[in-house]
Simulated assay, not measured.
Amino acid sequence: MTFPPFPTVSGSLTLAGPAGALEAAIDLPGDEVEARPVVAVVCHPLPTEGGTMHNKVVTMVGRALRELGVTTVRFNFRGTGASEGRYDQGDGESADLAAVAGWVRRERPGHALWLAGFSFGAYVSLRASDALRPDLLLSVAPPAGRWDFDSIVLPRCPWLVIQGEADEIVDPQAVYHWLEDSGAEAELVRMPDTSHFFHRKLMDLRGAVKHGVRDHLPDAAG
């Protein structure tokens, strides 16, 4: 399978991954905003618990970024949706992300690469960040305490962490303690009365994403 060219309109396509085809969706910013030379790859939550690239938190993060002029790439990890392969505890999923990021960099060499992830997707993008060296990292509800965060090399780029204070799946205190104990230089946004899936708080999430990354946007293209 060959890698397709980067599309000039929003739509779905298939990328070559290390375990077979990867289902992806590329969404360009609307005509009402100036396009920025940034492509953000957004990673979804745990596939074994129903997580896909169509998750509402994932799509809201993508929407917020596109409203700032960022092009977004969502994709299904191996074994999810139309993506081939089998779930691999984060190891193979990190390789999937590397394949997608490599395609973005080949096709958009003049663009910044941002990585974003929700829950399991935040874990995968975090553990891949040392090798991929993104220009910005966005972690929504990173699952500290549920996965091995001790071996993660902290990002060297601007890093925004958004955590719901009423998260029933990821322990907020575990996230706060991990950030403090590791000496992470992250901008932490604590969202009160907010559950793991941001029920009734998706618009607040949209605002937090836009406010948190706005200052890191490169000038508009062209």
Rank of each mutant, 00 (worst) to 15 (best):
L15D: 02
D91W: 14
S151K: 15
E187Y: 14
G121Y: 07
L68F: 11
A131R: 15
D96N: 09
A98E: 08
V73K: 00
G121H: 07
G164P: 02
G62A: 03
K210L: 12
G50C: 01
V39L: 08
G90A: 08
G164I: 04
G90V: 08
S119L: 07
P172W: 06
V58S: 00
D171I: 08
G17M: 08
L138E: 02
P5V: 09
V124K: 02
A95Y: 11
W147A: 06
H216N: 10
P7R: 06
R190A: 04
S12L: 09
H54N: 13
C157Y: 11
F149H: 13
V73A: 03
S195V: 03
G62V: 00
D135M: 11
R63G: 01
F77E: 01
E49S: 12
V124S: 00
Q89R: 15
S129P: 05
L113M: 09
S12M: 09
H196V: 02
D181T: 15
G62L: 02
G207N: 04
P218D: 00
F75D: 00
A35R: 14
R86P: 05
R36S: 03
H177D: 15
P218S: 05
R74M: 05
P142Y: 10
A35M: 12
L22H: 02
G11E: 01
R86N: 12
A112T: 10
S182N: 08
D88H: 12
G102I: 11
G81A: 02
W103A: 03
V73W: 00
L22V: 00
V42N: 01
F75M: 00
L113T: 07
H211W: 15
E67R: 15
P18A: 14
L65H: 07
E107M: 13
G85R: 09
T14M: 02
P45C: 08
R133D: 13
G145M: 09
L113Q: 06
D150M: 03
P155I: 01
V61P: 02
I169L: 14
E93P: 06
C43L: 13
R108G: 02
A131N: 09
M60A: 06
A99N: 02
D215M: 14
A208R: 12
P29F: 13
A19P: 08
M53C: 10
E168I: 06
R156L: 13
V170D: 03
D91R: 15
A25C: 13
Y87C: 03
L126W: 13
L46F: 15
H216Y: 15
V100E: 04
R214G: 06
W147C: 01
D27E: 15
Q163D: 11
P134Q: 05
A174I: 11
T48S: 10
A166C: 12
R86Y: 07
I162M: 11
L205F: 03
L217E: 04
D96I: 04
L115E: 01
F77S: 00
H54T: 12
E168Q: 12
S129D: 03
V161R: 05
A24M: 01
E34T: 08
H199G: 10
V213L: 11
G30V: 11
V57R: 04
P29G: 05
